[in-house]
């Protein structure tokens, strides 16, 4: 789902702050795919990722009173989600839990129909699968910056705020992540 423009999002957020659950449902529908993919890239488990996303959306709703509706929702929400996923990982470590990597094959919708002139469906699906497989092989911190930059389209400042790291580190991680991704995709042919 395409994110609303800033003015429209600001209006939706104001309705959410006023307690309009319908408005919040539409906001959740807009960002749930991004949230799930980011959580999955951190937790590698469908149930944990789904649970974390839903919990992060619930936390965000409760914290909306303190949110400036003129700011973008996504970077603020991604920070909540990132912190929640980080706490899940930390709890797993402390409890010596080994969470099985478990992602049902049909969790994502099939690749949308190609636009005219963009090659056939099989080729696109193959390319998409190769890129996502290469992404899955990257270290977590590299995968996170790539997802935030290329899928969520956050700026360097927003990524830095989400991950709680300096902008210089964001650029350095992005550089190294793309370098590794290019090498993995080259190796895979």
């Amino acid at each position: 789902m395409t994110p609303p423009d800033n003015n429209h999002e600001s209006e939706i957020l104001q309705r959410c702050v006023a307690g309009d659950m319908g408005a919040y449902e539409s906001l959740v529908a807009t960002y749930r795919d991004r949230a799930y993919y980011y959580a999955l890239s951190m937790l590698h488990n469908h149930h944990d990722a789904l649970d974390s996303c839903q919990e992060a959306f619930a936390k965000a709703f409760r914290a909306l009173d303190s949110f400036d509706c003129n700011r973008r929702f996504l970077p603020w929400f991604m920070r909540i989600l990132h912190n929640h996923c980080a706490s899940v990982i930390s709890r797993r470590r402390r409890r010596f839990e080994v969470s099985e990597t478990e992602v049902p094959v049909d969790v994502f919708r099939a690749t949308p129909d190609p636009s005219p002139g963009q090659g056939d469906t099989i080729e696109r699906e193959g390319r998409s699968a190769a890129v996502h497989a290469a992404l899955a092989l990257l270290p977590g911190e590299h995968r996170q910056v790539l997802v935030l930059r290329h899928f969520d389209e956050l700026t360097y400042a927003e990524i830095a705020e989400t991950l709680g790291i300096p902008q210089g580190t964001v650029m350095s991680r992005l550089y190294n992540a793309r370098k590794k991704l290019a090498a993995l995709m080259k190796a895979a042919g």
Binding site: D33, Y37, R109
Partner: peptide, 19 residues
């Protein structure tokens, strides 16, 4: 190489959850 990696990522886009 970095531009090619970025183009690959942007061309595949964000996967969507099933219905």
């Amino acid at each position: 190489a970095q531009q090619a990696a970025a183009v690959s990522l942007q061309s595949v886009g964000q996967p969507e959850l099933n219905d």
